[in-house]
Design a protein around this nucleic acid. Structure first.
Lengths: 181, 181
DNA sequence: GGTGCCGGTCAACGGTCGTAGGATGAGCGC
DNA sequence: GCGCTCATCCTACGACCGTTGACCGGCACC
């Protein structure tokens, strides 16, 4: 009972899932439309037909729901950042990686990432107390990104198989310190 | 009075400098031998003639002097890590970036990076006290990498133009905390 | 029940890349 | 001075990539 519209939606989603996985694993440049199509079990031409270009495919693949805004006391936002980190460490990492890995070599991905990350950085800085709020906000996000990069991109031992809960617990005093709590 | 050997040495160095800059800026895949050669003012064939392959060119470009080993009290190694970070923030960032950016999309670069980073991680873990020394060592290096990634690769505001000294001062309590000092 | 739309395939083009090999011309040892 | 070596350039090959357009077959509507 699959209507034609339904069939299309499914195929598109299959292509997007394959694209996300591949962008996350090997980055933008080494991801080829043909390989994505093959992984999704379709022809490369169809990917072009649906998404128009590799660039548009990437844009659609990384489109993700916005996170809820950061607000409250420094302790609150610190805890929110830690919770976000724990979530990203526990979940399958594709969502975090697809942007992070691709943006490092693909300018448009970098632009999109900054557009999404900057408001969040501003929210974080606004919630902090004391001097250098902006710099400290940057350091907090740097720590979060550093953990994800080291675990999923650099695959450096020590973090590779660590328990997310334990990582967050160890980081908590650091984040709170930087938050000025 | 430039002898032939001297001329060759200079040309090789010019090529390596151009390669380093380009690997650091756009990563391994988007760096082309022709572009490196053009930047160095020579022909692409010459690069092949000297280095044999793009892979070998990369290997030569990232070859760098090993840092002195980490040892001493937790406070000592914490300070050594901070000093290393400050140096990398103050110097021109090419040296730090060429490996970091390329390795994220190039498997062989990643392999080389791990080979260099793992012993250092072990040294760090060995110098720490208390439980979870390995994990805490991983977190410390994650923080260092996170700051560099955020400043030079993500170009996220807040760290982009921060004073290296101030960054290190803000991070010091965090690192010492994780070091178990 | 014909007919047009649409999900999907296939073959091809133009471009770029890594790489190979020949040509050239200037420096160096004898 | 002569011949060899080597730094350097030029051309070409094969592979692969993004992208295009023609083509096919079944579903849905009149």
């Amino acid at each position: 009972m699959t209507s034609r519209a339904e069939q299309r939606r499914r195929t598109e989603e299959r292509i997007l899932a394959a694209a996300r996985a591949m962008f996350a694993e090997v980055g933008y440049e080494r991801t080829t439309i043909r390989a994505v199509a093959a992984a999704a079990g379709v022809d490369g031409g169809l990917v072009m037909h649906y998404f128009g270009s590799k660039h548009e495919l990437f844009a659609r693949a990384v489109r993700v729901a916005a996170e809820e805004p950061l607000e409250g006391s420094p302790a609150d936002v610190a805890e929110a950042m830690l919770a976000s980190l724990e979530r990203r460490l526990a979940d399958e990492p594709v969502g975090s990686l697809v942007v992070l890995r691709s943006m490092l070599t693909h300018d448009e991905a970098a632009e999109g990432f900054r557009a999404a990350a900057l408001p969040r950085l501003e929210q974080l800085a606004a919630a902090l107390q004391g001097p250098d709020a902006h710099l400290r906000a940057g350091l907090i996000t740097a720590i979060v990104h550093g953990v994800i990069v080291e675990r999923y991109l650099l695959h450096l031992a020590g973090l590779e198989e660590a328990d997310p809960q334990r990582v967050v617990d160890l980081l908590r005093p650091c984040i709170r310190l930087l938050a000025g709590d």
